Amino acid sequence: MNDVSRGRPQAFIFDCDGTLVRSMGMWLSFYPELVARYGISMTPEDFAATESLAMPEEIAYYHRMLGIGESADALIDEAREMLREKYAHDVLLRPGVRAFLEAAHAAGIPMAIATSTDEDLVRLALAHNGIDGFFSALVTTEQAGASKEHPDVYDLALERLCEARGIAVPDHADVWVFEDALFGLMSSGSAGYRRVGVYDYEGRAARDDVQRTCEVFVDEFTELALDADGAPTCEVDRG
């Protein structure tokens, strides 16, 4: 990993949960809370195997495996109602996010979101925190047709961002992906994107693994700045 810039970035693509907003702790408790309504006791670790799935796929999986809810669709609706309340009122920005987005906007860098979470939930959190105006596109893994174990969602986010801004799709090496999830960092890197790894202490990825799987690593956005070319760089000397 190094901080060496290779020129002006043409776009920034951000994950949302665990990267822009501090929501992973809520997600870790959400699934146990949901199944507890049906008298089932599970720990956050019991849900680790399905973390990369989009929320509807994950909920449908637990309907099949645990037999909870009248149907998969009914359980998904119940879960979404619970989540709407949390995203509209409880999910907050990580430290330094707003200042970094303002700096990137001032530098003229187009920005998009690529997320595994339902679009309506992400938009609630963005609006609640007053940062929805920074992003020209928002794409979900459900829309992309693949989990973040594949780079499809980043590719689609870039395409829609460029379409919205009326610009040509740039080379992936000129685009930065901001992610906390190890599988997202790995898949975006395999597609040629440059990566900012954002450690989330509430998530499941080990800090050392995140640090090894990106070009720039930070514990918080307060450590990030833009260099003279507009590329992200860490202001903390880690030796």
Rank of each mutant, 00 (worst) to 15 (best):
N2E: 08
R8V: 04
R8P: 04
Q10Y: 01
A11D: 07
A11P: 00
I13S: 02
I13M: 02
F14A: 06
F14M: 10
D15F: 01
C16D: 13
D17G: 03
T19C: 12
L20E: 11
V21S: 15
M24I: 12
M26P: 01
Y31C: 02
R37F: 06
I40P: 05
S41F: 00
E45R: 11
D46R: 11
S52Q: 09
I59R: 03
I68R: 14
E70Y: 07
S71C: 09
A72P: 11
L75S: 06
E85M: 07
E85T: 13
D90E: 15
R94G: 00
G96S: 09
V97L: 00
E102A: 15
A103L: 01
A106E: 15
A106W: 00
P110V: 01
A112L: 04
I113H: 05
T115W: 02
S116K: 14
T117S: 15
H128F: 01
A137P: 12
L138F: 10
V139F: 09
T141K: 10
Q143W: 03
K148I: 02
H150A: 12
P151N: 09
Y154A: 14
L161R: 08
A168W: 04
A168L: 11
D174V: 06
D174A: 15
V175K: 08
V177L: 11
F178T: 08
M186F: 03
G192N: 05
R194A: 13
V198Y: 00
Y199K: 12
A206E: 15
V210N: 05
V210D: 07
T222E: 13
L224W: 03
D227C: 05
A228Y: 02
D229C: 13
D229E: 15
D229P: 03
G230L: 01
G230Q: 11
G230T: 07
V236H: 03
R238N: 11
